[in-house]
């Protein structure tokens, strides 16, 4: 038997502070698959690539590198369930390994706190760990509650697969990896025209002008409805999840238009498919439900929750 693979679990901000159900679902799913998630003590904000990357590249790279040094010291790769954190940590790791001028500047800054970027670890996304390490076969073996007949739309988001030449993850014009991963749940994939456009939250746009950010989201929803709608939308990113989930409440406020989509992170989808009850990770704590005082559309999701 190969040695059990361990990752430092980089939480970031949105997962632990706004969508903790994703943190718990990840723990359930990775545990079921025999992959260890280690606490990453003292990790900070990735930092937010939109704001920090746009403000000062060197400060952005230094704070990201500080996070990387925590994993380097322990000798395990990092795994994150957030496209934004992935954008900061993966990109900084890549840039620091290739741009020596930047690396020197960053290490000069890190010396101030007694740290040094060495470039000895890799950064993974949940999607990589699930698809590449666990593999689709092993995931299918775990599925005890298939989402048969449930119509599933996808929002892959941007920063896991773009820029494609550098990331080399998937063809960003015709991606298939995230789709194949989600299809292990047994749900039926529903394509829609604007599946691949951005949710609108990134690049510090949500922070600057939430209404413009929501226009992107609305375009996606309308495109999905034009394609016949879906019972749920799956994303690999909590910031996209926030934008699509809580964004529905905001859209109602700003545009007086009501959408009711259940939005799940891919690890939440898999936790349910693996037979975990929604209460085990708190699916109903998504901000949309808290703010609307509503619940997931259990019946559409094909989930019996008699005990509720």
């Amino acid at each position: 038997m190969a040695k059990k693979k361990s990752f430092y679990h980089f939480l970031g901000c949105i997962i632990p502070h706004r969508y903790p159900s994703v943190e718990k679902a990840a723990k359930l799913v990775f545990n079921d698959l025999g992959i260890d998630l280690l606490d990453m003590d003292g990790a900070t904000c990735c930092p937010a690539p939109g704001v920090f990357g746009s403000f000062d590249r060197v400060t952005w790279a230094t704070i990201a590198a500080r996070n990387l040094t925590i994993a380097e010291a322990g000798g395990h790769p990092i795994v994150t369930g957030c496209n934004g954190c992935f954008a900061s940590l993966w990109d900084a790791n890549y840039e620091l390994k290739h741009d020596h001028e930047l690396r020197d500047k960053v290490n000069e800054n890190l010396a101030e706190i007694g740290r040094e970027f060495k470039g000895t670890i890799e950064v993974w996304h949940y999607v990589d760990a699930l698809y590449q390490l666990a593999g689709l076969e092993k995931i299918r073996d775990q599925v005890t509650r298939p989402f048969t007949g449930v119509r599933m739309a996808l929002h892959p988001g941007c920063h896991w697969m773009r820029p494609k030449i550098i990331k080399q993850k998937d063809d960003s014009e015709r991606p298939h990896i995230f789709r194949e991963l989600c299809e292990t749940s047994g749900a039926e994939y529903v394509p829609y025209k604007d599946e691949l456009i951005c949710c609108g939250a990134g690049g510090a746009v949500r922070t600057a002008d939430v209404k413009i950010a929501l226009e992107f989201t609305k375009q996606k929803f309308d495109s999905l409805i034009a394609a016949g709608g879906a019972d749920m939308i799956i994303t690999p990113c909590p910031f996209c999840e926030l934008q699509l989930d809580a964004g529905q409440v905001e859209i109602q406020k700003y545009f007086e238009q009501e959408y009711k989509f259940d939005i799940l992170h891919v690890v939440e989808l898999l936790a349910l498919a693996f037979g975990h009850e929604p209460d085990e990770f708190g699916l109903a704590t998504h901000l949309q439900y808290m703010q609307r005082k509503s619940e997931p559309a259990w019946e559409n999701l094909g989930i019996k929750v008699g005990e509720h």
């Binding site: 690539p49 939109g50 990357g53 746009s54 954008a87 941007c158 920063h159 773009r162 820029p163 494609k164 030449i165 960003s172 014009e173 691949l196 456009i197 951005c198 609108g200 939250a201 990134g202 690049g203 510090a204 746009v205 600057a208 002008d209 413009i212 950010a213 992107f216």
Partner: peptide, 12 residues
């Protein structure tokens, strides 16, 4: 200048 969401579609 602050409306770019850094989606990287243009870059790809």
């Amino acid at each position: 200048l602050w409306y770019c969401t850094t989606c990287y579609t243009c870059t790809d």
